[in-house]
Design a protein around this nucleic acid. Structure first.
Length: 443
RNA sequence: GGCCUUAUCGUCUAACGGUUAGGACAUCGGCUUUUCAAGCCGGUAAUCCGGGUUCGAUUCCCGGUAGGGUCACCA
């Protein structure tokens, strides 16, 4: 009965009636992976039968998303292109007595006085879900449900079943919100003589309130937004794959190929899982660490104004962000300005704790001296560190020199250490700023 | 409310019926050459409740409780 000897065909069938949310990413991913594992075909199908609500821009959005994520479909269909096929089946269902035209009394705006209903055989349907196990529904509860407004407007349940049949879909992997839809789709499938696909209903991805993801959630954005704020596609895939499933070990970071190798649909969780943005950020940071220098530069510079596009600044930034979009905030807050602009600050802040001013001036002068006589070629953060630390260690407290130097260079309460700063600023600028700090203190 | 379904740290999860119930994120503390970040080390933290079955239940069964999904001429 179940056609598991055929070539595996999976599909992901989003509806372009709204912003595409992240929950769908995992469904698409699992369909993609499952097809790959079985040398099968992965179909992307835009379910745009609702003429009033479907919009091209929404379809473009998920198309862009999947392209970015690298979830390439083998075939693409748009349901609205398939009306004739749907009509053919509809007509046959009516003539075979599986469906009938029904007179109605419209209760809402836009409702028809005549629709096409499915003739419910009113029986119990049992199916064996790959994830949930055996589930039984009594379809009597469904009544003779509507499958088309008229011959030109077939509805979801009908078109899904026809298309899955026509496209040879063997495995329907979708969210658990569709579990209750399954019996009626099985009924339609039986009416048109379609083999029953194997079902796998994925646990829902929940918001922080433990409810299904909705447009209004603040912790979860429409999927494409993750691209816009600078997440890496691999990180998104990695993170989504691990909500509701994991391969068992203690490894957390996986490439798509690794996921494909390890994924086991029968080990998918039954209960829904909360989308945890913190974990996503952590995974994304791990992905950033894996990037090569050239790629890193490309990503980071894309978010930086010209004057801050300095190679040495890259590690300073990447260890302070979890996604590239965070750079925007750093730039806008002005915390990076000192890299190309002399800092303006309150001279009192050069003083380390209770150290007296004279000592600070003396220390600043020693720093200036050692830096001045350092060869341009020797001016690396490693060397600067060695030189400065030598002085620092002779002091009662290292902060008595490290703090004023760091502050003189950055003018900021929080910044990278003085060695890195001096290295990035370069010898000349470092000397300039040190001199300025000294004269400021003397004034 | 009907139907379907779920239940391990705050979150994602691991654990042939026998483990000091493991890991990760978050959090807390410490260390690392001043601050921030990063890094390293460590701590706090869970089997929803009640009955069974069993020598022994996180694990199997039943009931309860709590949660979720769904009940369109949307998908």
């Amino acid at each position: 009965m179940e056609n598991n000897t055929k070539k595996v065909v999976t599909r992901f069938a989003p509806s372009p009636t709204g912003r595409f949310h992240v929950g769908g990413v995992r469904s698409a991913l699992y369909n993609f992976i499952f097809a790959r594992q079985n040398n099968g075909t992965y179909i992307l199908r835009s379910e745009d039968t609702d003429k009033a609500r479907s919009k091209k821009e929404y379809e473009d959005e998920f198309l862009e998303l999947f392209d970015w994520l690298g979830l390439k479909h083998d075939l693409f269909f748009r349901q609205s292109d398939r009306l004739e096929i749907h009509q053919k089946y509809l007509a046959k269902m009516i003539s075979d007595g599986y469906a009938y035209i029904s007179k109605e009394t419209p209760t809402e705006e836009g409702q028809r006085a005549e629709v096409i209903r499915f003739k419910n055989p009113n029986k119990k349907i049992t199916f064996n879900d790959l994830i949930l196990g055996e589930i039984t529904f009594d379809t009597t509860d469904l009544g003779d449900f509507v499958i088309a407004r008229d011959m030109d407007e077939p509805l979801y349940h009908l078109t899904v079943v026809i298309d899955d049949f026509e496209m040879g879909v063997t495995h329907v992997i979708r969210g658990q919100e569709h579990t209750p839809n399954t019996p009626r789709q099985i009924l339609i499938g039986e009416a048109i003589g379609a083999p029953r696909p194997i079902y796998a209903h994925l646990p829902l991805i929940l918001n922080s309130e433990r409810a299904k993801l909705s447009k209004r959630d603040e912790t979860v954005m429409p999927a494409i937004e993750y691209k816009k704020v600078g997440y890496l596609p691999g990180a998104i895939l990695n993170f989504m794959a691990l909500n509701g499933w994991n391969p068992g070990g203690e490894k957390e970071i996986f490439t798509l190929d690794e996921l494909t190798k390890l994924f086991d649909i029968s080990k998918v969780q039954k209960g829904g899982g909360v989308f945890n943005p913190d974990k996503l950020d952590w995974i994304n940071k791990e992905y950033i660490k894996l990037l090569g220098d050239d790629e890193l530069e490309k990503y980071v510079f894309a978010w930086l104004p010209k004057e801050l596009q300095i190679k040495k600044i890259i590690p300073v930034i990447t260890e302070r962000i979890s996604k590239f979009g965070d750079i925007k905030g750093m730039v806008e807050s002005g915390e990076l300005d000192f890299f190309y602009k002399e800092p303006v600050y309150d001279k009192e802040k050069l003083i380390y704790k209770n150290t007296n001013k004279e000592t600070i001036i003396t220390n600043l002068k020693s720093a200036l001296e050692i830096i001045s006589k350092t060869d341009e070629a020797q001016f690396t953060k490693e060397n600067i560190k060695i030189f400065l630390m030598e002085i620092a260690d002779s002091l009662e407290n290292r902060g008595q020199i490290l703090h004023p130097v760091r502050f003189a260079l950055s003018g900021l309460d929080k910044s990278p250490d003085p060695f890195i700063l001096a290295d990035i600023l370069g010898k000349n600028e470092t000397i300039t700023r040190l001199n300025k700090a000294i004269s400021l203190l003397n004034s």
